[in-house]
């Protein structure tokens, strides 16, 4: 009987829930994309940058990684406005998550590049490759394989962190769910349902990561 009520309610609320999922996915995809692109730059700067640049970027990553994401989200929404950068909640939230993501990806990229033995660069130099070529054909492809598992982890973290945007009023899945619960009082069912949806998204990301890992693994 209660199960029927749950599905009836769910059916009635399908549009807001689907919209919520859509917003959650957009936030996550944008944050991961922008964060990854920025993060690769951060990783390269940390590994190969001249000393002043390296220090600057090191300061950036350490500061961001030492700050709770929620603080970043709130700062991005409330503080940037006071200095004349007026962002809507969605934009501010994505910015905060992207920045957070970039500092993590940066560290992952740095770690992967630094774990490649020096002999690889030397061998590439010895056959006459320039540094950009060495990076493109020797270091990059090896780093990519190392980055992948940790990157998948970060991507899943971003999906989870997207819930924090509900605080600043972005109507993503969690906020939609809470609105639904406040109308129906079916908190157990719908929190569980939302949890399941997040799990499904992250499980999908993880399976995809495993698939790519398998496809690109080096035979040995």
């Amino acid at each position: 009987m209660e199960l029927v009520t749950f599905f009836e309610t769910l059916w009635l609320a399908r549009i807001p829930i689907l919209k919520g999922i859509g917003v959650t996915v957009s936030i996550s995809v944008l944050a991961i994309l922008v964060g990854t692109v920025l993060g690769i730059g951060v990783g390269l700067a940390l590994t190969y940058g001249a000393r002043p640049l390296r220090w600057l970027v090191r300061g950036y990553t350490d500061f961001i990684r030492g700050t709770p994401v929620l603080v970043l989200v709130l700062a991005s929404y409330y503080v940037l406005g006071t200095v004349g950068i007026d962002l809507g909640p969605f934009q501010a939230g994505v910015l905060a998550l992207a920045v957070f993501c970039s500092s993590h990806v940066g560290e992952i990229v740095r770690g992967a590049l630094q774990s490649i033995p020096k002999g690889q660069t030397e061998a590439a130099k010895a056959i006459g490759l320039t540094f950009p070529q060495t990076f493109a054909y020797v270091l990059g492809p090896q780093a990519l394989r190392q980055v992948l598992p940790a990157w998948v982890n970060t991507a899943a973290e971003m999906v989870k962190a997207s819930t924090l945007l509900s605080i600043i009023g972005v109507a993503e899945l969690l906020l939609r769910t809470q609105e639904l619960i406040s109308r129906t009082f079916m908190s157990l069912e719908f929190y569980f349902f939302a949890g399941f949806l997040y799990f499904a998204v992250n499980y999908g990301i993880e399976r995809f990561g495993r698939y790519v890992e398998r496809k690109t693994s080096i035979p040995s």
């Binding site: 002999g119 690889q120 061998a123 010895a126 056959i127 490759l129 090896q142 080096i218």
Partner: peptide
């Protein structure tokens, strides 16, 4: 880089590129 290609070098630790087959290792340069 151009001058390095005038010499060839073999290393103590081989330093083959692990993500390429033997033939691809030779082909890269």
């Amino acid at each position: 880089a151009r001058q390095r290609a005038m010499t060839g070098m073999a290393f103590q630790q081989f330093n083959l590129f692990p993500h390429m087959s033997a033939a691809e290792n030779v082909m890269l340069g």
